[in-house]
Design a protein around this nucleic acid. Structure first.
Length: 429
RNA sequence: GGAAGAGUGGCAGAGCGGUUGAAUGCGGCGGUCUUGAAAACCGUUAUAGUGAAAGCUAUCGGGGGUUCGAAUCCCUCCUCUUCCGCCA
């Protein structure tokens, strides 16, 4: 929210703070805001007088000159005191201002935690293995059985929460990303394979994954990217785009790194929660229009749903409530995929609309064609495919069993051309 | 890793201590002329903050310093170019 708007109607922001469960002292912020503006006016006034003096010095003869210089020196000292004060005040102002949340959409359900999220729809039906006459294996068991990975050796060499993909599972990953990228290309996304390193200053402007959940490099303060979104939303940071260029549809592929701090003991086994994974992400930059943003939001959600359908996976679409959606978000949907071994849906996608919240931090703007006005761009993003997490569903939902062949994992029809026409993943034994 | 050079408006490119927010050219926009277009000519053409407005303030890669005064001098960081070394 623009500071001018907040001054006019702080109530809107106060309500957002409550909805998002954020502690913030609005009154003292507004007081500080006044102070900063007052100080700014004061310093600008001194500067103005100094500029005038400076011009007079130029055109004055030696006698007046010394007097004028003396006066200017005095002003200089006076200015320094105020400027220093202004800098400190302004810094704390910035800290506070940028810690304010995005106002949540009226359409977003009100709530405190993930328990208040609402399932909008379920697509596909979980299989009834009992009826099919066999006990399904977990993805871990399927991997072990087929030697598609080796968690023990992987953690011996690379530590906890690491993994390998071996044999056909590795090929399958490549095939899945290949399919996904082509799908995005067909929807006019510009594709990017992005760096795994991101500058500290750029990282800190980004916000969806916290700093202490990310790896910082000791050498130069860079970070390992937690998601390609960070690279792509910042891609045009500091620029003024033309309205005609928008919307920009970017598909980013990268390795993603997360410490998973604070999740010790949670999902320690298997492919659910890892320090490193690969992901194709959709990023949209569009003009500052709520309707357009909503359209784009549903568009990137739809793309992911379409992919899930192609992968023949049962899933649900969930709308996140105000308390669960994160500070910068205006509205948020998750896609949760069915996991037979846990008998529940687990998150594989997250589609968020930020309006201008992110753009404000990275100074990402565009010029309106008609009015020539400069406005903040609206940003959105959604997962397209995250692996290996989605392998959990892909392996477990597509397993088959018969006496002759034992357990096998089939490949969804649409993916088969990308796997050399094979119908099943080949065991790596 | 070593050595040298450079970063100025949408682009190209001057300026290297004092009406320089910045010459000039190209591009963009508006106009004159024209049946229309081109050419030519005239005008206009950055962003942000603040203010009702006039205006004021800031910005010549980022940050800091020297100075009455900095695009211009100094420090530092970043980026780019060239050469050497190393290397998928």
């Amino acid at each position: 929210m623009d500071i001018v708007e907040i001054r006019k109607s702080p109530k809107i922001m106060e309500e957002a703070l409550i909805a998002k469960n954020i502690d913030f002292d609005m009154r003292s912020f507004l007081l500080l805001d006044d102070e900063v503006r007052e100080l700014k006016r004061k310093t600008e006034d001194i500067k103005s007088r100094q500029n005038i003096l400076s011009k007079e010095i130029q055109s004055s003869d030696t006698l007046d000159r010394d007097i004028l210089i003396e006066r200017s020196k005095k002003l200089k000292d006076e200015l320094k005191v105020d400027v220093d004060l202004l800098k400190t005040k302004e810094n704390s102002w910035k800290d506070l201002y940028y810690s304010l949340p995005q106002v949540p959409s009226k359409k977003a359900p009100n709530g405190k935690s993930d328990e208040d999220n609402i399932v909008l729809e379920t697509v596909g039906k979980p299989r009834n293995f009992e009826e099919e006459g066999f006990t399904p294996l977990s993805h871990m068991e399927l991997i072990r059985l087929n030697n598609w990975g080796d968690f023990e050796r992987s953690s011996k060499v690379s530590g906890a929460r690491s993994y390998t993909l071996q044999g056909d599972l590795f090929l399958y990953e490549q095939a899945l990303f290949s399919y996904t990228l082509q799908k995005l290309r067909s929807k006019n996304f510009k594709l990017f394979s992005v760096p795994s390193l991101i500058r500290g200053e750029v990282f800190k402007r980004s916000t969806t994954v916290s700093e202490n959940d990310s790896y910082e490099l000791k050498d130069d303060g860079s970070f390992l990217v937690p998601t390609s979104e960070y690279i792509l939303t910042n891609w045009h940071g500091g620029e003024i785009l033309e309205e005609a260029e928008l919307p920009k549809l970017y598909g980013g592929y990268s390795a993603c790194f997360r410490k998973e701090a604070g999740s010790y003991g949670k999902d320690t086994k298997g492919l659910m929660r890892l320090h490193q994974f690969n992901k194709v992400e959709q990023v949209v930059l569009c003009k500052a229009d709520d309707e357009v943003a909503e359209k784009m939001h549903l568009f990137i959600l739809e793309n992911a749903k379409e992919l899930m359908t192609d992968l023949e996976l049962p899933f649900e679409v969930m709308e996140c409530c105000t308390g669960d959606m994160g500070k910068g978000k205006h509205r948020m949907f998750d896609i949760n995929s069915w996991v037979p071994s846990e008998n529940c849906y687990r998150e594989t996608h997250s589609a968020s609309s930020f309006l201008e919240w992110q753009a404000r931090k990275m100074d990402l703007r565009y010029r309106e064609t008609a009015s020539r006005k400069v406005k903040f761009v609206y940003t959105l993003n959604n997962t397209m495919l995250a692996l290996p997490r989605t392998f959990i569903s892909l392996l477990e939902n597509h397993q088959e069993f018969d006496e002759k062949s034992g357990y096998r994992v089939s490949i969804p029809t649409k993916l088969r051309p990308f796997m050399g026409g094979e119908k099943y993943l080949k065991s790596n034994n």
